[in-house]
Every structure is written in structure tokens, then in C-alpha cells.
Write a protein that binds this DNA or RNA. Structure first.
Length: 304
DNA sequence: TATCCAAGGTAAGTT
DNA sequence: AACTTACCTTGGATA
């Protein structure tokens, strides 16, 4: 067992672990106390969280990484040196002060940033991100999370850590081998065939989410929509929360509400044009940061 | 207690 | 291309 700490004040713009992993952008983290989403994300939470690094990240078996934020440090424990993984997964290398400073002056954006200061975007493993956002269609955040937990328990490799059994997120071939009926039994509903077929596409090498990376933003979004169950919105989520396209602004119900109430001129009808307009309104390069703050702020009861 | 509704949308079919 | 409609499931709101 290795352990380490990362001082929060060494990170530009600070950090808030709870709002980062409970904001609805990532579904690869869980709380050891099993109370994910039960208390509203707010600065000050000090629960232990864990994630399981997929084997294609570790080069060997999946690795459990445990982390919590307390007394001004991010503590971690794992069987390997987890710090570089945490820096990447939780985007601790982002200059959050600069990102906030580059955000346009706007009452809604300021309120959202003030409410959850320290929240960072994430870099989720691409396959898990793809599957979890396929599952997100017309679904509540807490239930999306529950689906991912059940998928991991049912199809993912077991990993022992600190006297407990954890499960990695399934590999593409493991999910591809599932049947639609089995996935429906896990509560996926009409998303079940989408997940199976997309997993099959990745397993066979027909397409892989990583291959979207490196393309210009809109071309990358187009690439991802070839997966079954992936439209423009889900594609934007994968680009933003996994592949590092910080300009992506997923147009979900909350953002569409915000557009209607605050930026009606950005409603251009089609997804592509509206997306372009709100992306510009949110400052372009880091528009996805603004989107995620606004999403969390509105979803947790902030004044629209 | 029963019914209704909406949840981080997408695919397939029509105009 | 833009517009409709069906789709699983369920916790929480409403009657």
C-alpha cells in the first residue's frame, strides 16, 4: 500500500473533490460510505472516494485508487504511485484561476463559479465515459451512477484492495458479450442494445472513442456519433469529460433551460448552431468548464 | 393509494 | 435538413 498527499494550495484555483466527482460529469468514482449524491455537493465534504484504473492505464491489472480531501490536502492510497493518475483523471494540472479569469463577465456564470469554486473537469477513461453517457439518456444522475456500478459488478474484473473486493469497469469485449436481456435486467431499459452494440463496435475495432481525439472539435463530435446510442449531446459529453475538448458544451435539458432564460439569442434551432452560439457566449476555449458549473449550479437548485 | 411526470436523448420514420 | 414519435424504468410530485 502506497500513500501520498497533494496540497490543495499547490493547485492554481484550488480543488473540490466532492463537487468534482459528484457533479454528474463522471460515473467512474464512488464513495466508500455509499452515500454518493445523498448530500448536496458542497465544499467541505471529506468522504473517501475510490475509482478503479482500467488495465489499459496500468499496463497490468486494474488498480483501486482511494482519495479524500481533508485539512487542505488531497490524500490518496493505492497499490501503486497514484499521484500521476490523479493529476490526469481530476485535471489537477488545469490552471483553474486562469480558466475562471478567462470566463466572460456574466451573472449566471459568476454565481455558478462562486457556488462550487474548486470544481474541476475530469479526464475519464474513454470507454467508460462513452458507455456511461449512453446510459445517461433521459435518466437521473444518481441512477446513471447505479447503472455503472451494476455493470462493473456484473461484467468487470474483480480487484482485491485493503480487504475488500472492487470491480473494474468492464472491458469492451466483456460488455459486448452481454445480451440485451441481461442489460435490461440491470435496469438499462432501452439503452441496453445501445450499450451492447457500441461495446461490440469497440471490441471488434470497428471504431474506438480514442480515435476521435486529435481531430478538430466538430469532426471529433461527428466521429463519435457513429456509435449506437450516441447523438450530438452524448458525443459532446465524451469530448468534454474524457477527451479533453474543453470547448465542448453539451446541450442538455439544464443548459437548454439556461439558454431559454438567459441567452435566448443563442437558440439557433439546430444543435450544431445553438452549440456554436452558446460556446461563443461562454468564452470559447473553456466553454465546457462554464457549462459544467452552470449544469451543477442549476441542477442543485441555484437560481436560474 | 393511484396516477402522472420527467429524467444530462437517440433512432427511425415523415415531411 | 427539420420535425415527430416511440422508447425502459422509477423516484418523487400531485390528486
Amino acid at each position: 500500500m502506497e500513500r501520498g498527499t497533494i496540497p490543495i494550495d499547490s493547485l492554481s484555483g484550488g480543488f473540490d473533490l466532492q463537487s468534482t466527482v459528484e457533479s454528474g460529469q463522471t460515473y467512474v468514482w464512488a464513495r466508500e460510505d455509499d452515500r454518493m449524491y445523498e448530500d448536496a455537493p458542497a465544499y467541505g465534504g471529506d468522504a473517501w472516494y475510490y475509482t478503479v484504473l482500467p488495465d489499459d492505464r496500468t499496463g497490468g491489472d486494474p488498480v483501486v485508487v482511494r482519495a479524500r480531501q481533508r485539512d487542505g490536502v488531497l490524500e490518496w492510497a493505492a497499490s501503486i504511485d497514484a499521484e500521476p493518475h490523479l493529476v490526469e483523471l481530476l485535471r489537477l494540472d488545469d490552471d483553474l484561476d486562469a480558466i475562471v479569469a478567462a470566463t466572460p463577465d456574466d451573472p449566471l456564470l459568476e454565481a455558478a463559479y462562486d457556488a462550487y469554486r474548486g470544481m474541476r473537469l475530469v479526464r475519464d477513461p474513454p470507454f467508460a465515459s462513452l458507455i456511461s453517457f449512453i446510459c445517461s439518456a433521459q435518466m437521473r444522475v444518481s441512477r446513471i451512477h447505479g447503472m455503472q456500478v451494476r455493470l462493473a459488478r456484473e461484467y468487470g474484473n474483480a480487484v482485491e484492495f485493503d480487504g475488500r473486493t472492487y470491480h473494474a469497469f468492464p472491458r469492451p469485449a466483456q460488455l459486448a458479450a452481454a445480451t440485451e436481456a441481461e442489460l435490461r435486467d440491470l435496469g438499462l431499459g432501452y439503452r441496453a442494445p445501445y450499450v451492447q452494440r457500441t461495446a461490440e463496435m469497440v471490441a471488434t475495432g470497428e471504431a474506438r472513442p480514442e480515435e476521435a481525439a486529435g481531430r478538430p472539435y466538430e469532426a471529433a463530435r461527428e466521429y463519435l456519433t457513429q456509435f449506437v446510442g450516441v447523438g450530438e449531446k452524448v458525443a459532446d459529453c465524451v469530448l468534454l469529460f474524457s477527451l479533453g475538448y474543453l470547448e465542448a458544451v453539451p446541450l442538455d435539458t439544464w443548459i437548454r433551460t439556461a439558454i431559454a432564460e438567459h441567452y435566448p439569442d443563442c437558440d439557433q434551432g439546430s444543435y450544431a448552431e445553438t452549440s456554436r452560439a452558446i460556446r461563443e457566449r461562454f468564452g470559447g476555449e473553456y466553454a465546457g468548464y462554464a457549462q459544467t458549473y452552470v449544469f451543477l449550479y442549476l441542477r442543485t437548485g441555484g437560481e436560474a
